[in-house]
Design a protein around this nucleic acid. Sequence first.
DNA 1: CGCAGTTTTGATGGACCTCAAAGACCGTGG
DNA 2: CCACGGTCTTTGAGGTCCATCAAAACTGCG
Lengths: 246, 246
Amino acid sequence: MNKIAFDTKNCGTCPIQHRAVCSHCDSAELQMLDSIKYYRSYEAGQSVLWAGDHMEFVASVVLGIASLSQGMEDGRTQMVGLLLPSDFIGRPGRNASPYDVVAVTDLTICCFRKKPFEEMMLKTPHIAARLLEMTLDELDSAREWMLLLGRKTAHEKIASLLTILATRDANLYKKIPLDGMVFDLPLTREAMADYLGLTLETVSRQMSGLKKAGIIQLEGKRRVTIPDIARLMAETGDDMDGGMLV
Amino acid sequence: MNKIAFDTKNCGTCPIQHRAVCSHCDSAELQMLDSIKYYRSYEAGQSVLWAGDHMEFVASVVLGIASLSQGMEDGRTQMVGLLLPSDFIGRPGRNASPYDVVAVTDLTICCFRKKPFEEMMLKTPHIAARLLEMTLDELDSAREWMLLLGRKTAHEKIASLLTILATRDANLYKKIPLDGMVFDLPLTREAMADYLGLTLETVSRQMSGLKKAGIIQLEGKRRVTIPDIARLMAETGDDMDGGMLV
DNA sequence: CGCAGTTTTGATGGACCTCAAAGACCGTGG
DNA sequence: CCACGGTCTTTGAGGTCCATCAAAACTGCG
């Protein structure tokens, strides 16, 4: 299902070992975590958790992407987070997920049984400290996204999303963000719309617009080429230099 | 400036002692905090911090309300948080504020010198643990707001904001949210617009609409009466029962 | 009273949503 | 190999909600 292999018996081979919630742990702590952890995999599109579900675990995303969504009764939904490798799922001290969690791509997560994890948190400040760091980063991302949702035009929203996805993809493969970047969209038009607070038709139209303007090239539905990243970034409405957390 | 008085020499008289970042601290820890803290006050409208400013402190809101805002170069701004008494300003390990912080009402904050506060955090898990709790709560609030910004109509946005403000006000004065609630809007129409991702004209029109529909009554610009809170909540688009964090 | 800041109200246009249908892509099975 | 259906995407036409521009009304204050 997932391409990248790693030895689930050995955290030293784990691809997210340096950024996950366990990244500050010493080997004794890792050993304790090891005794309460297990892996789960999901195929693209599968649901990991429904809003209101009881959670018996918290988890780290190891491979793939998951989405966090909130819905209204009438069917409107808003994605409130994209969880990438090393991101954390769940909240210590809470039993039910307030959000729907869905595997956007094929997904592997590293689960920790909740009760013992919470007990460990009290004893090992390393975990709590790292979780605080990660939560503060997520809060910054959420606020960045509030600006996008509240004030950006559809055009700027699409450009912003593409910029983020392209940059992330480049980082993932340790490439320097260069001209002629190529990557595969992990999101359907509908998922993009849910994330951006738009309809899928508007997303499609804006994508076509960017294509016609020569700012992006599309190959099939998913493959995107960005001949000039600066040109795309100029469409985001953002300051050229600063910002762009996430 | 602020009505409620408390003895700044004695944390036992502090109105936010049970909810602030210091709420889990024992008396020895409070004493340490006491040695690195000082108070500041601002009048309504004054700026506390500009985005990019160097911060020599972190702080707790004691009295009044502050706003966190993000701006784009062309002048568009989006409020990304409303800080109420007990809420925390600043981030350990970061030197510059990424947001504008403005006193919405007259405001008093309890500042801790950043360097020693960060050192204390490493030693006293009580502080870090409470800050983690508070940050997770803020993250939930931010995500709730993302749903509002991305998917709610202007009408629903206004109803949601009024519901939240009314409920908070009732809590603050330990009243049970009842029919015939009366409170003063702490926000100008422009601030409401910035928070809701609307223009001030749209805010004004929607307020007039709710008034004409008899769902709210307005006295002067700021005083709001809500004869039937359930009727207002029915306009928010939310599930009647759950949700409504914050 | 007169002035500045805030709020309300009006008129207009445009960005985006809604409804609708056709087209592209992909796996399955004949 | 191609036909077929299902899913995802594109494109079109029309309508609506909200932003924009503009001006008047209200509030508080010297």
